[in-house]
Write a protein that binds this DNA or RNA. Structure first.
Length: 491
RNA sequence: GGCGCAUUCGUCUAGGGGUCCAGGACGUCGCCCUCUCACGGCGGUAACACGGGUUCGAAUCCCGUAUGCGCUACCA
């Protein structure tokens, strides 16, 4: 941990995000991408996007496309790529062959069955298994003979005998004993390169200076470091990010709700809110500020402040963050993201001016875009569904229909249908009838929104407009007169 | 099993030996604002995993224990 002090990064960096396209982009992946984004933003340089699609069975073009969409939606910007690792396989093989030629790697003729047996035995004896270097020093003639016989072989890396050290920006100076790694495989017996070979080769070719990735790669790093060296590449600086946990402190799983960018998007989360929330899951600006735009975070981002312990994903706080952005962003910035939800709510063709006014009225009251789109629906409907249980107190007042009818008549005769006039009108009607304003306001709100809560009544009515207000009041009066029975078509 | 990493309010975190009977945020509770709801404001609630050291002094440094997690493939 001591080494962390003063590891602030100032020069240009080359960072990369290298997801494998196996479905949706999960929160862990997004956060990794975001920290890379911020590091690049802070220090300058380049962000390389590399798709690790070598596991062809699980990868396809659509998934690659999806990752790019999810990243750009989130607000992560990359400078180079996407590069497909699958297209670089020949290069990886070529580099592995170089290691073989330089005797930094060797052919291993051991069969999987043999290795499995040895591994099982070692486990039974209570120890850990590492490759016993059976083929590490075969005589050249022996090798030639076996190749001649057509025996398949894998290519193994000659792991160093010294302990391996590297710098991890999150955890400090790391040191692994030599026996922590064995002579791992570079090329499978079918000739294809393994993950370790591909990653290191690509990181070298792409001149990556900082590898920011998940903690699950921490134990792989002592394998990668000597491989960088053997291939003549500069060893990058590492930063291994802790995992993201679910509320049960286990690996985040679906049963606690959305876990992927696509799902958050579908729920109506704004990209900057997701981005902002994710950044805070493992990093803090060090001052008591939390809601910060990407550019600002980029300016003050500092790997020094990355947290080393796992964090529980808190959906509530994400929703809160979303609410912050929903109400503070300019409406025009929100609109593009909102559009699909409006369409879904059947409001695609709604009157633009009224829609806009309605959105302004409701956005600070909604936590998601989906909620917002649903909330403004009341301004564009022929009939409203009332919160029936909450209507009990209105039904208990036999004079209410008359009062509301008077209110409606008064409002309809107003020369100007604006909130000041509406309020003055309502207070006048209430006064004439010996009522408190609230005695009209609350039932009117129910009549015009179907709910007990919502924006200030006169704002609501102004946006609703004269015609709809009259109609909805009429419906509600009829509803009250029926004693609360719903018309046929409304159940 | 082996190796590694982690451990501050329910959750995200601040904290780099004294300024910490531990600060901020989400949540929660109460109050204010108010026609309701939300926003906002104010206040309350609640934490240094445990045990040993080191030190005049430890949340902070060291060692152990516990717990959690990761890795331990011819997967990535």
């Amino acid at each position: 941990m001591t080494e962390r002090q003063g590891t602030v990064i100032e020069g240009p960096v080359r960072v990369r995000f290298a997801p494998s396209p196996t479905g949706f982009l999960h929160v862990g992946g997004v956060r990794t991408a975001i920290y890379n984004d911020l590091l690049r933003l802070h220090a300058g340089g380049a962000f390389v996007l590399r798709i690790e699609d070598t596991d062809k069975a699980r990868s396809d073009e659509a998934m690659t496309r999806q990752i790019q969409d999810a990243l750009s939606w989130t607000g992560v910007r990359w400078d180079e790529g996407p590069f497909l690792q699958s297209e670089r396989l020949p290069r990886h093989t070529e580099r592995a062959q170089e290691l073989l030629a330089a005797d930094k790697a060797y052919r291993c003729f051991c069969t999987t069955e043999m290795l499995e047996a040895q591994r099982a035995e070692a486990q039974k004896a209570g120890g850990s298994f590492s490759y016993p270097r059976t083929c590490a020093h075969l005589a050249p003639e022996e090798i030639a003979r076996r190749i001649g016989e057509g025996q398949p072989f894998a290519v193994r890396f000659r792991a160093p005998d010294e302990s391996i050290r590297f710098l991890d920006l999150v955890r400090g100076d790391m040191e692994f004993p030599a026996d922590a790694i064995d002579d791992f495989i570079l090329l499978r017996s079918d000739g294809t390169p393994t993950y370790h070979m591909s990653v290191v080769c690509d990181d070298i070719d792409m001149a990556i200076t900082h590898v920011v990735r998940g903690e699950d790669h921490l134990s792989n790093t002592p394998k990668h470091v000597p491989l960088f060296l053997a291939l003549g590449g500069a060893v990058p600086v590492f930063a291994h990010l802790p995992l993201i946990l679910g509320p049960d402190k286990k690996r985040l799983s679906k049963r606690f709700g959305a876990t992927s960018v696509e799902e958050f998007r579908a729920e109506g989360i704004l990209p900057p809110a997701l981005y902002n929330y994710m950044v805070l899951l493992g990093w803090s600006p060090g001052e008591d500020r939390e809601v910060l735009p990407r550019e600002e975070m980029g300016r003050i981002f500092d790997v020094d402040r990355l947290n080393a312990s796992a964090a529980v994903f808190d959906r509530e706080k994400l929703l809160w963050m979303n609410g912050q952005y929903m109400s503070s962003l300019a409406l025009d910035e929100v609109r593009p993201y909102l559009e699909p939800f409006l369409a879904e709510a059947g409001l695609a063709g709604a009157d633009p001016a009224r829609l806009r006014a309605a959105l302004e009225l409701h956005r600070s009251r909604s936590r998601t875009l989906r909620d917002l789109a649903a909330a403004v629906g009341i301004y564009f409907r022929d009939e409203l569904a009332y919160d029936v249980p909450a209507c009990a107190k209105f039904l208990a007042d036999p004079d209410l229909p008359v009062h509301l009818a008077a209110l409606r008549d008064h409002w309809m005769e107003l020369p100007s249908f604006d909130k000041e006039a509406l309020e003055a009108g309502l207070r006048a009607v209430a006064g004439e009838r010996g009522l408190k304003a609230g005695a009209l306001i609350h039932p009117a709100r129910m009549a015009l929104s179907g709910e007990t809560g919502g924006p200030p009544l006169f704002d609501l009515v102004e946006v609703m407009g004269r015609e709809e207000t009259s109609r909805h009041l009429g419906h509600f009066i009829a509803f009250l007169r029926r004693g609360g029975a719903l018309p046929e078509h409304q159940d």
